[in-house]
Amino acid sequence: MGTEVEVMGEAPLPGAVLAGLIGHGIQASRTPRMHMEEGAAVGFPYDYRLIDLPLGMGEIALAQLLNNLEDAGYCGINVTVPYKREILTHLDALSDDARAVGAVNTVLFTKDGRIGHNTDYWGFAESLRRGLPDAARDHVLLLGAGGAGHAVAHALVDAGVRQLLVRDMNQALADELVDELNARVGPGRARAVTDIGEAAGAADGIVNATPVGMLKMPGMPIDGALIAPRQWVADIVYFPLETELLAHARAKGCAVLSGAGMALFQAVRAFELFTGVTPDADRMKAVFDSFD
């Protein structure tokens, strides 16, 4: 399937931490430079590689890829769209955060097996805490109930959102996420919605956790006419940083939160998991901001 050559590549430097990112359409990722430059800053060689996979890779191929990564000496991998939930069946254990969220974006290869973590949860929570500390949180509309949507949803209810309104084109995914949230934090805290206009009208904030807005999937996940100046709007997409959704909301006078914070802070936590070293978040942010 072509992934074995990508996994092997050039041999890493002796003693280097070898990690990577698996996903589809990830060549624009800022993650490798953030990890490798922070590794250099703290004084050890760090080799972080992109493993760009084709869509529709089956369960057997994904299992073989993980075997190849372990055999090649990877200490772990980050996982992005579309594999954050698909990878669950190939792991031996889950951290508390991954178990609560029901999705994994970081896998450690250890002597005790493959351990799944979710650093997206903390990444979004920290971004929201720093970027929109005073945002109203009575009702929030979440667009997208996939792997990233699960992490964002749990972070939102834990950040004090009284009722989370969940919309996904796949109604079963939305219902599943709502059931998970209500089971964990109490009945009525989340509700799946089908009338996006009504939900947007009730919302203090709108969060996009879908891929819509990425360079490879331009557009907006919601009709711009449904966005009001009183609302805050957040997007987890980070390339481009100024998505069409955020540009539209900003023009209307909304407070906005880009995907930069989530991308940064999930990488900060993943770096610590891979290396055992606490990184300098400000230094990693400077690398993230250095991209054009």
Rank of each mutant, 00 (worst) to 15 (best):
263 A>D: 15
274 F>Y: 10
110 T>Q: 02
17 V>Q: 04
230 R>Q: 06
132 L>N: 06
292 D>I: 08
287 V>Y: 09
138 D>V: 03
169 M>E: 02
47 D>L: 08
153 A>I: 04
37 E>C: 10
243 T>D: 09
287 V>L: 14
281 A>W: 10
127 S>G: 12
138 D>M: 13
53 L>R: 03
172 A>D: 15
79 V>R: 06
216 K>Y: 11
63 A>H: 02
12 P>T: 11
250 R>V: 03
151 A>G: 01
72 A>E: 12
66 L>Q: 08
219 G>H: 13
206 I>H: 02
39 G>I: 02
36 M>R: 14
79 V>A: 10
93 A>L: 04
18 L>V: 12
16 A>T: 08
245 L>Q: 05
23 G>K: 00
291 F>E: 06
233 V>L: 12
126 E>F: 09
244 E>N: 13
50 L>W: 02
270 A>L: 03
264 L>W: 00
263 A>Q: 13
73 G>W: 07
156 L>V: 10
164 L>K: 12
73 G>P: 11
283 R>K: 09
289 D>R: 07
91 L>T: 02
55 L>E: 10
135 A>L: 05
195 D>L: 12
235 D>C: 10
183 A>H: 05
122 W>P: 00
185 V>N: 00
19 A>E: 02
81 V>A: 05
139 H>A: 09
212 V>G: 13
248 H>V: 14
176 E>C: 03
207 V>F: 15
261 G>D: 01
36 M>K: 13
178 V>N: 07
270 A>Y: 09
132 L>Y: 10
54 P>Q: 05
260 A>F: 12
224 G>W: 13
214 M>T: 13
230 R>A: 13
172 A>I: 08
17 V>M: 11
291 F>C: 03
233 V>H: 06
116 G>M: 01
262 M>S: 04
244 E>S: 14
191 R>E: 15
16 A>Y: 04
244 E>I: 09
219 G>P: 11
276 G>A: 02
175 D>K: 13
213 G>I: 06
3 T>K: 09
289 D>E: 15
39 G>M: 07
120 D>V: 00
